[in-house]
Nucleic acid binder design. Sequence first.
DNA 1: GATTAGATTGCAAAGGTTTGCGAAACTGTT
DNA 2: AACAGTTTCGCAAACCTTTGCAATCTAATC
Lengths: 329, 329
Amino acid sequence: MENITLKRISGALGLSISTVSRALKNHPDISEATKKRVNELAEFLDYQPNINAINLRAKKNRVLGLIVPTISGFFYDFFISAVEEECRANDYTLIILQSGNDPVTEINNLSICRQNRISGLFVCLSTNTSGMTAFDKFKEADIPLVFFDKVPDGKGYNKVCIADGEAATLAAKLLLEKNKKNILSIFGNTSLSITRARQQAFQLMIASKKEVANNIQHCNSSAEAKKITDRYFSKKVCPDAVFCMSDEILIGVMKSLNELKIEIPAKTAVLALSNGFLPKLYYPEITYIETSGYKLGKLAFISMMNCIDGKTEPAELFTSSPLVEGKSL
Amino acid sequence: MENITLKRISGALGLSISTVSRALKNHPDISEATKKRVNELAEFLDYQPNINAINLRAKKNRVLGLIVPTISGFFYDFFISAVEEECRANDYTLIILQSGNDPVTEINNLSICRQNRISGLFVCLSTNTSGMTAFDKFKEADIPLVFFDKVPDGKGYNKVCIADGEAATLAAKLLLEKNKKNILSIFGNTSLSITRARQQAFQLMIASKKEVANNIQHCNSSAEAKKITDRYFSKKVCPDAVFCMSDEILIGVMKSLNELKIEIPAKTAVLALSNGFLPKLYYPEITYIETSGYKLGKLAFISMMNCIDGKTEPAELFTSSPLVEGKSL
DNA sequence: GATTAGATTGCAAAGGTTTGCGAAACTGTT
DNA sequence: AACAGTTTCGCAAACCTTTGCAATCTAATC
């Protein structure tokens, strides 16, 4: 079946292409009568403007890119969900690409984005990104970048972040308020800036009460978190609280505690920084400080719009992290 | 900064646009010397072919659409993840849209897809889709549709599905083998074809052993599943096994059992149909029959490629559902 | 030296849309 | 009837790429 184009409509109506184009755009030059005729036929023929032609002429695509280590999980899917909603509401097309934490794939994805002539890009760096040179090309081309979650160091980049320090401080405060004396606090890989920010703030606050023991541990996976917890809770004196820096860690901790049949919060309290999905799965529901991927996504889109609207200075925006009470503290 | 185009390169090299175009495509008509010159300059200038111009000329976009009720969850994100991988590997761009289970949004999304001139569309129907007329337009336009998860009734559509019957039968068989006598089986909303398929197969197999009691219940949420479980396990004679049709139901069941401190599998066994993520969270790990979103995504892509390659008859493909042993049975 | 074959390159059209500018038609005034 | 002033519309270029066909050039053959 032949494509419906302006030419086709103009031919059928005995008008010029430009008149049809303007009529469809409700241009004041065109008489109401003509507009009506054109719109009716366009409707009838189910005319769809050719987006390629439009973009070609306009020299820009209303397309945003989004690169993420992986879509599935407890965090990025929520982030993507928020960004997609905003893109749809603002007439942007969204292209999502997974890097799988592979630097080579990451570079390829950047290339795909450039081929697609995106107007902006959301990026969560892969864990072992080799450098920022590939990203700097976008800056040169005046394509705004908004980093989230795993962000590059240094000024000069747009970033949206969880207020890691605040959240961790709040967590520590809560534990102190509840008079916990022997805390097991588990963090992720220290090479990540999130880890450092969260740990530093947490540590600082706990240290304000000299008599409180803070057992700091690091891990790279749920399994490692479980092992650590196993170890601490097979001692004579068990921790009276466990702090989990992330959902991934929470999984390991809970598995251990459930297996060891440690009652929560009677024997030990559990507190986590979490996206909010997992804590509600457990019994009792885990008290957590919300580090919402969804909220972060909304914020990222705002930041992107700012960039596209010409705000030039790179900005770092933060989401708030409210406490969500469960029964584990 | 000015855009790099073929014209720009041809000007700089004193060649014609067509020569440059062919050189970059390694056309045999062009001498090696010229190819080298062209490629080097293109590389140097970081030339990116204008995809809009290419698509305009080719009259088709290498773009696939994907409509899903929501990205986040335990299922669709895995499905999307698989489809994205395949799209990337096969040079397709993927556009993901959420319907939020709203029929109006669904229609709008279809419209967005048409505007983007997609070459194919993956669809999971929203729960209350009003009818298939909006989708039939795609058929008329020869744009292949591949339905997954929530699929329309009747022949005439491409579908990829979990082998619901097989999976449920396998589940029932396992419970019978373990000599369970009093089973609580919880299913989702009966208006969904998945529910009906799973329930029917499960019921049939259990009924083959007359002495086994099968308590069938339905629910629309985790919370409802929890209530049902609460009720059954506050009776004098508790079920010796719980079957969960889905992850959502499993969540409610586990919350109830944990709260009531019912030991698994000592007091009662738990068996689920699941995407595989949640069962590994619990202690003990839940035995499940895998209804993998990831696998389904891979299959959907295969089906899509078949359609695009001109296979005309609508086909219904199934993924297998292997047993994954946990410690709950 | 003329002819031919083969290698290499260029011309021009097409794909669909937008838009500045000019042209035509119409209105109403004198 | 001539004019100005509006209203309404069309021409043509530009966005960038691909490709059938024609054109040019080189070298070899008769």
